[in-house]
Simulated assay, not measured.
Amino acid sequence: MERAGFTVLAPDRPRRPPSWEAEVDHLAAFLPSGHRVSVVAASNGCSAAVRLALAFPRRITRLLLAWPATAGDPEADARVRRHLTGLGASERTIRVLVAGRTLRGVSDGEASRLAMPVGLLPSVPENRNHQRATVDALRRLLPHSEELPGCPEPPRPGFAPHLDRFLTSVAGFLRPEGQA
């Protein structure tokens, strides 16, 4: 993205946050003072990005959600619960992190309040963690959203041949037509 003229900030997510709000607090510290930014997030990071955009709507100009993690699927949620339990998370923390119908940690009502342009990039092919139904549900919640061409998510082996098209799609969404 830097080759395309973007300044890229890529903060790591906190290792074991107890809540989505803790992630937002961590990520908010990286927002450049006095500047509006576009946010690109992937998988479960989409939940953190949406919460960040809800907390700082005047600071986020565009939001791209790539391969949003599926919530509300009993099998996928059970797998996440087992993983978090294995990491030693409390039942309360697990409830907070897994809660959500479309995106974890975000109610559909909250998501529908996003006012900035939102790009949605589905996983193609879909998989249990990144289902097509999640992108479809987000499209219904966010009628002003735009779906970008899908591709496998990294680090899947099938991603590499899609890298250039992925970067072109992301850059095109982040730099609306007519902007240099």
Rank of each mutant, 00 (worst) to 15 (best):
H130G: 04
A55V: 00
A76S: 14
P157F: 11
R62T: 01
E146K: 06
G86A: 09
E147K: 01
R92I: 06
E75L: 12
G158Y: 09
L120P: 01
R95A: 14
L120N: 02
A133D: 13
L63V: 12
R101A: 12
P68N: 01
P152F: 06
M116D: 12
R140L: 11
R92L: 09
L141P: 05
E126C: 02
W67K: 02
D77Y: 00
L54P: 00
G88F: 01
L120F: 03
V118A: 10
E91P: 07
D77V: 02
R104A: 11
R156Q: 15
A111R: 00
G100P: 09
P143G: 12
A76E: 15
P74D: 15
D136G: 06
V80G: 02
T102A: 07
L63H: 05
F159G: 07
A55N: 00
R82Q: 13
Q131M: 13
N127F: 04
V106D: 00
H144Q: 15
G105L: 01
T61N: 09
V118Y: 11
R82S: 12
L120W: 04
P149D: 10
G86K: 05
V98Q: 03
R79T: 09
G158S: 11
L103R: 05
A71W: 14
L148Q: 06
R62A: 12
T134W: 00
L84I: 02
H130Y: 08
L121I: 08
S112T: 12
G119Y: 10
E146Y: 08
F56I: 03
T85N: 08
S112D: 12
A66F: 02
L87E: 14
E147G: 06
R59M: 08
R101F: 01
V80I: 11
R104M: 08
M116P: 04
L148M: 06
A133Q: 14
E126R: 03
H144V: 05
T85R: 11
D136M: 10
F159Y: 15
S90F: 05
P122H: 02
A55I: 00
R62E: 12
P152T: 04
V80A: 10
P161Q: 04
A55H: 02
A66W: 03
A89G: 00
E147I: 03
E91I: 01
A71D: 08
F56S: 10
A66K: 02
R82D: 15
E146S: 13
A76L: 07
A89H: 09
E126W: 01
T61G: 13
R82K: 09
G119P: 11
A111M: 01
